[in-house]
């Protein structure tokens, strides 16, 4: 049997509801880390990234695969389970890859001044994900939160664009964290 057919949700309604609540929690409380389970995507996709794709992407959300993630096994898996059109950078509503492969970030849609919601959501695959590192402040954070971001300058530049800008999910294994464009980031 073709591997691309395997590894999706077994009980889509329930599993996606749990996955969305975790995604909503980490995006509304930057610095929080949750775990996502339920999908078994092909390498190099992490479980968390696979679950996010199954939960948020479908035929209406053009997806860009960056770097090593743009391979036949991932493309086939996404095509079968999500049906998301795989597109070039400029047309992407979602983009998936590691931090280096997603560069330069300036090529992604940051929304329009009258429709700031029309901005890309990046799913960034990380080698590690911990609640320490850069200092986060802003909506969703009582005082300060910490997250091991791949860098700081890019997120400061992104915050300066507010209300425009991209929003990020970070995934590592089953772990997921997020950084909305509204968060102020400082180096330690």
């Amino acid at each position: 049997m073709n591997d691309a057919l395997l590894g999706g949700f077994v009980d889509a309604a329930v599993q996606s509801s749990h996955a969305f609540r975790a995604a909503l929690t980490v995006l509304s409380q930057p610095g929080e880390i949750r775990e996502l389970h339920g999908a078994v995507p092909p390498a190099p996709l992490s479980v968390a990234a696979g679950v996010l794709l199954l939960t948020l992407c479908d035929g209406t959300t053009p997806l860009h695969l960056a770097g090593a993630y743009d391979c036949a096994s991932v493309r086939d898996w996404i095509t079968f389970h999500c049906g998301a059109p795989l597109v070039s950078v400029e047309a992407a509503v979602f983009a998936l890859g590691d931090w280096v492969a997603l560069q330069p970030l300036g090529q992604f849609a940051i929304g329009l001044p009258d429709y700031p919601d029309r901005a890309v959501t990046l799913i960034v695959e990380m080698p590690a994900l911990e609640a320490k590192g850069a200092v986060l402040r802003g909506p969703g954070i009582a005082d300060a939160a910490y997250l091991s971001l791949p860098e700081v300058a890019a997120f400061q530049a992104n915050r300066a664009l507010f209300p425009l800008g991209f929003d990020c999910f970070f995934t590592c294994g089953a772990k997921v964290a997020a950084l909305p464009r509204s968060t102020h980031v400082e180096a330690v």
Binding site: L56, A119, D167
Partner: peptide, 14 residues
Amino acid sequence: KRMIRRAILKGVAV
């Protein structure tokens, strides 16, 4: 639900 969930996430971001 996916469509609504995407809207909620963008609402949270802005």
